[in-house]
Design a protein around this nucleic acid. Structure first.
Lengths: 215, 215
DNA sequence: CGCGTTGTGTACCAGTTGGTGAGTTAGCCC
DNA sequence: GGGCTAACTCACCAACTGGTACACAACGCG
């Protein structure tokens, strides 16, 4: 509909697009079926190109999977860099950080699934990826700063470090998504039910703040 | 060496043992490789019997996997029924319950892995199993009793229910095991490192007690 | 316009996968 | 000791799996 020179059968010879297309489809399939469960043939079929191109661009199933992980992690890290809670007082900042983490996990279930899958494989692909291994989390720096301010003000307990706090917040947020199905099947409560959302969000804030400010 | 009638080549014609053998090997393999990643041929090889017997006793890969899940869940539930913390005052009882859950999860990593795997498959096998779906957790009853006593004594917050508390404790305990590998790869801290164990155990108790008794 | 490079499609393959047909033996019952 | 059935063995397979050989077309460049 635009005045572009090509329009109808233009989807030829676009390496960038082909690669991105494969990666998008592969992300969905790996997140859906797991590494072993995902099928190269099926990924190719859902693509607008062919299986040959997967091998041309990525080399093999495992390398494709690693590329998926790398893209997913870098996307998430990009989001985390937008955190801005440093103008708040420590207690409010922690509550806000927890809430942001909460929202964030809820918005990216595919990422959580990929992380679960990667844990089943004992993180062997992440360990082998030069991009991913040892790359720290921007959220952790923010957390460190908030804690330091809280300690200085004497409002936070001092027997935990930033990573401990991150662990608690992550555990809560990851669990809701990652274990949603077995939890739902056994206890008949859908942890992602929208009507429970506010309660769940509030609960995480209460939990972390009560813990850090106790005594 | 005993006076038993058979001794050397006695391992023939024992349906019970064959079934149990298959189930034990299958549990290890499914927990290790996931559902799609596990291979019937390999399970058979690691067994003292043949692949044909797997189909004879279980019918197929999926039914074998469901049998594995059912056995694992019923074993875990058996453990939970031994909980006895009702003689303690509410705060101490909660701390003890959290500690028991902590120990419990740490001792059964294969179970946690099976649960993670089942979540990847959206709990479709549990939902289909008549034994597993909707079967509640003994730990939850104990928790309900403790909370009720705490509310009566006016020491616990009243804006949460037993399932909320169970969720928080489970999230913490499951995360340590289920996400051990990606967490370790990214933050260089092994959540199951024995030297961190006491700190981690204490932290869970502090977290839950501080939260429930806040205000 | 010729030509090497890059991107793409077709056809194909060897190994593996979950699954089975059909026969065989051990052990119990009468 | 004859017969019946549960437990077991062995050989086999169709479908699928990840992966590849190869021809060729589009593009950039001089």
């Amino acid at each position: 509909m635009t005045a572009q020179p090509s329009e109808a059968v233009e989807r030829i010879r676009d390496a960038e697009r082909t690669r991105a297309d494969i990666l998008a489809v592969a992300t969905r399939e790996f997140a859906d079926q797991g590494y072993a469960g995902a099928r190269i043939n099926l990924i190719a079929d859902k693509t607008s190109t062919t299986k040959r191109m997967i091998y041309y661009y990525f080399g093999g199933k495992e390398q494709l999977y690693v590329a998926v992980l790398e893209q997913a992690y870098s996307f998430i890290r990009g989001l985390e860099q937008q955190l801005d809670v440093e103008h708040l007082d420590p207690v409010e900042a922690i509550r806000e950080l927890a809430a942001l983490t909460f929202d964030h996990h809820e918005s990216h279930p595919d990422f959580i699934r990929l992380v679960s899958i990667e844990n089943i494989h004992r993180a062997e692909h992440i360990a082998r990826s030069t991009i991913l291994s040892g790359l720290a989390n921007p959220a952790l720096d923010v957390l460190g700063t908030i804690l330091a301010r809280g300690w200085a003000a004497g409002v936070f307990r001092e027997d935990v470090d930033a990573l401990d706090v991150h662990q608690v917040i992550s555990a809560y947020c990851v669990f809701r998504t990652a274990n949603r199905h077995t939890f739902g099947a056994i206890f008949a409560r859908d942890l992602l039910d929208p009507s429970l959302r506010e309660h769940q969000r509030q609960m995480l804030g209460d939990l972390v703040v009560a813990w850090l400010t106790a005594r």
